[in-house]
Nucleic acid binder design. Structure first.
Length: 420
RNA sequence: GUGGGUGUAGUUCAAUGGCAGAGCACCGGAUUGUGGUUCCGGGCGUUGUGGGUUCGAGUCCCAUCACCCACCCCA
C-alpha cells in the first residue's frame, strides 16, 4: 500500500457515518432549544490569534499547534480549539451591536499535534457553545445545563460534573503567588515536570500524579480562599443556579483549564471508563478574552466537547446512535427487456422519495434476492418481461413473504403499499 | 516529547527455526421466474517495511513505521 492516512487521524466510513450525523444533529437540536445558533469559522486562522488567546506558555501553543506559512510568508495555524476563532469572528463582524447577548454553537474539526492515544487524535471533532454578553451567573449554569441535559438525552448517565472558580485576573495572580510561597521550600524535591510547572503554571502542581509530589500537596492553599468578594459571590450564585436547575456537581478546586483565557467559573464533565482521556467536555468563563482580541470588554462563557470520546462512552453504555439507512425496496429484474423497460418506473419511485436499490450486474434471481436480503430492504419489486408487457409489477414483503401484484403506474401504488 | 505492548488473508485468529492455514465475511454455482437454510467451488497473502543471523525466518536480532496502553496534555 502506497499511501497511509496521517498518524492520529481517522476516516469515518459509511458504516459509522450515521453515528456522527446523529450526534451532530442531536447537538444542533439541543443547542437551538436554548436559543443558540450555529457559527462556522475557517479551519485555519492567523497563528497569532491562538498564541495571544491561549497563552504563549500553554502546551497547545508551545508544542501542539500545526503552524505553516503561506506563499506570502504569513504564519497561520490549523485551529487547535474553537473559542478564539468564534471570538475573532464576533469582534470582526460586530456581532455585539446586533444584540446585547450572542448565543453561538459550532461543530467541526480541531487539530493538535500530540501523541495519539485512546480518545485522543491529531484531528478531532469538537462541538462547542459560546455565550457572549453577560456576567450573570445564570448563564454559567445555562451552558452547563445544555451539556448535562444533552448527555442525559443521549443516554449517558454516569457522568460527573466538577466545577471550580479560578477567579478574575487579580485573584489568580494572588493565588499563584501564594502557591509558589507554599511550594518554594520543597521545590528541589519535586519531580522535574513539577519544577517546570512551578515556573509556568503553578496551579498544575495540584494535579501531579507522582506520589512524592502528591505528598507535598497537603495543606496547599485553595484557589477558593483567594477569591475576592465579587468572584466569591459570583461562584456561589453559579452554584445556586445549578442547584435550582437540579444539576448535580462537585466542587473540585484542582480543576485548572489549560488555556490562559479562563476566568471565574471552570468546569469539566468526566466519564470514568475512557481510560486516561476521561474528560468529555470542559469549559469556563472568559471575561477578558474579547477585549484581548481587540473587542470591547464583554463577559462570556463557553465550553467544548469531543465527539470521539462521547462516542466511545455512548457505545460503552450501549446507547442508541441512530441507524444506517436501509432501502425501502430492492428491484429484482428478469430479462433484458424488463431491465431497460423498468427504468422509468425506477426513476419515478426514486423521485417520489423512496430509497430503491438495484444492481444491474447481478443476473440470477438468486443473487438478486440475496443482495436484497443483505441490503436490509423491506420489499422486493420483481419485474420480468411478462409483467412489463402486462403493465404490472410484483411487490414482495421480504419479512412476511407476502407478494402482491400492482399496476405499473407512476409509482403511486408501490409508494402507498410500502409506506403502509 | 518519554516508557511498555502488539503487528500473519477484508476481519478474528492459528502455524516446535522446516510446504503459510482455519472460522466468519465476500464472490460464483446447484434448470435466469422467487431470497434467508443447505451443498459445491473460489485465497501464491510482499507474514507492516528494510536490513541481519541461519542450509532454512511468520518465528531469533537490529532499525523503522503503524496501532494499542500509560506518562504528559487536553475536549
Amino acid at each position: 500500500m502506497k499511501y497511509n492516512i496521517p498518524r492520529g487521524t481517522f476516516d469515518i466510513l459509511p458504516k459509522d457515518s450515521y453515528k456522527w450525523q446523529y450526534l451532530a444533529d442531536s447537538f444542533r437540536k439541543i443547542a437551538s432549544r436554548f436559543g443558540y445558533e450555529e457559527i462556522t469559522t475557517p479551519i485555519f486562522e492567523m497563528a497569532e490569534l491562538f498564541e495571544r488567546s491561549s497563552g504563549e506558555s500553554s502546551d497547545v501553543v508551545q508544542k501542539e499547534m500545526y503552524r505553516f506559512n503561506d506563499r506570502k510568508d504569513r504564519t497561520f495555524a490549523l485551529r487547535p480549539e474553537g473559542t478564539a476563532p468564534v471570538v475573532r469572528s464576533y469582534v470582526e463582524n460586530h456581532l455585539d451591536v446586533l444584540s446585547s447577548r450572542t448565543k453561538l454553537f459550532y461543530i467541526g474539526p480541531m487539530f493538535r499535534y500530540d501523541r495519539p492515544q485512546a480518545g485522543r487524535y491529531r484531528q478531532f471533532y469538537q462541538y462547542g457553545i459560546e455565550f457572549i454578553g453577560s456576567n450573570n451567573p445564570y448563564y454559567d449554569a445555562e451552558v452547563i445545563a445544555i451539556e448535562m441535559l444533552w448527555l442525559i438525552e443521549l443516554g449517558l448517565n454516569n457522568v460527573r460534573l466538577e466545577i471550580n472558580s479560578v477567579g478574575c485576573a487579580s485573584c489568580a495572580a494572588d493565588y499563584e503567588a501564594a502557591l509558589r510561597d507554599f511550594y518554594r521550600p520543597n521545590l528541589d524535591k519535586l519531580c522535574p515536570d513539577c519544577q517546570k510547572r512551578f515556573e509556568l503554571k503553578p496551579k498544575r502542581l495540584l494535579d501531579c500524579k507522582v506520589p512524592s509530589c502528591k505528598a507535598f500537596r497537603e495543606g496547599a492553599p485553595s484557589q477558593l480562599n483567594y477569591l475576592d468578594e465579587a468572584c466569591k459571590e459570583h461562584f456561589s450564585l453559579v452554584r445556586a443556579s445549578l442547584d435550582a436547575m437540579g444539576i448535580a456537581y462537585t466542587v473540585n478546586p484542582a480543576i485548572v483549564r489549560g488555556l490562559d483565557y479562563y476566568t471565574n467559573t471552570a468546569f469539566e464533565v468526566i466519564y470514568d471508563g475512557l481510560g486516561a482521556q476521561n474528560s468529555l467536555a470542559g469549559g469556563g468563563r472568559y471575561n477578558g478574552l474579547i477585549e484581548q482580541i481587540g473587542g470591547k470588554s464583554i463577559p462570556a462563557i463557553g465550553f467544548a466537547g469531543g465527539f470521539e470520546r462521547l462516542l466511545l462512552a455512548l457505545e460503552q453504555e450501549g446507547a442508541s446512535l441512530g441507524s444506517r439507512s436501509v432501502p425501502d425496496a430492492y428491484l429484482v429484474c428478469l430479462g433484458d427487456k424488463a431491465r431497460s423497460g423498468i427504468m422509468p418506473y425506477l426513476n419515478a419511485l426514486r423521485s417520489k422519495g423512496l430509497f430503491v436499490d438495484y444492481d444491474p450486474d447481478k443476473s440470477s434471481l438468486k443473487a438478486q434476492f440475496k443482495a436484497a436480503d443483505n441490503s436490509g430492504a423491506r420489499f422486493a419489486i420483481i419485474v420480468g418481461d411478462s409483467e412489463l408487457e402486462a403493465g404490472k409489477i410484483n411487490l414482495k414483503n421480504l419479512q412476511s413473504g407476502e407478494q402482491q401484484t400492482l399496476p405499473l403506474d407512476g409509482g403511486e401504488a408501490a409508494m402507498q403499499a410500502i409506506n403502509r
